[in-house]
């Protein structure tokens, strides 16, 4: 990577920013186009370790619905999203379930848990 263009999503202004590798800057990068310093932080995070919260559903038995909504309780690395979906799709749970209950502990060794996002009985 030498240079990447992206949109900062930290606030609604949505600056178009450029992140350029630069050995002379203490952070290792210079960022252009950002209207504030949060844009620099975001840009560097996006090129070094972008992370996302994953939300999906798992199959639930004995409930009035067929799917239980779940989320990762912290962001996971972006490149692990599709692997994480595979893990989520393997799971089947039985009602009752409570909001916050751990459905998958330490998913893919990330230290992050997949938890239920609603009660289901």
């Amino acid at each position: 990577m030498e240079k990447r263009e992206m949109i900062c999503i930290v606030c609604p202004v949505g600056c178009h920013i450029e992140v350029i590798e630069d050995k002379n800057d203490p952070s290792g990068y210079i960022v252009k186009g950002n209207k504030c310093k949060r844009g620099k932080e975001y840009g560097i995070k996006e090129v070094t370790n972008p992370t996302r919260i994953v939300t999906s559903t798992v199959k639930v038995n004995n409930a009035h619905l067929c799917r239980l909504p779940v989320k990762t309780n912290n962001p996971i690395p972006k490149e692990k999203i599709s692997e994480c979906m595979k893990e989520i799709n393997k799971v089947e749970v039985n009602a009752p379930v409570e909001v916050g209950e751990v459905i998958i502990r330490n998913v893919l060794g990330t230290g992050v848990d997949v938890v239920a996002t609603r009660d289901m009985c």
Partner: peptide, 25 residues
């Protein structure tokens, strides 16, 4: 909200990002 399972709800109300079902709950 029960079908909006993604996160991004409640930043103003609770100061944290909840999913739709969590917000409703």
């Amino acid at each position: 909200l029960q079908q909006c399972i993604h996160n991004g709800f409640g930043l103003h109300e609770f100061g944290e990002e909840l999913t739709g079902p969590e917000y409703a709950d």
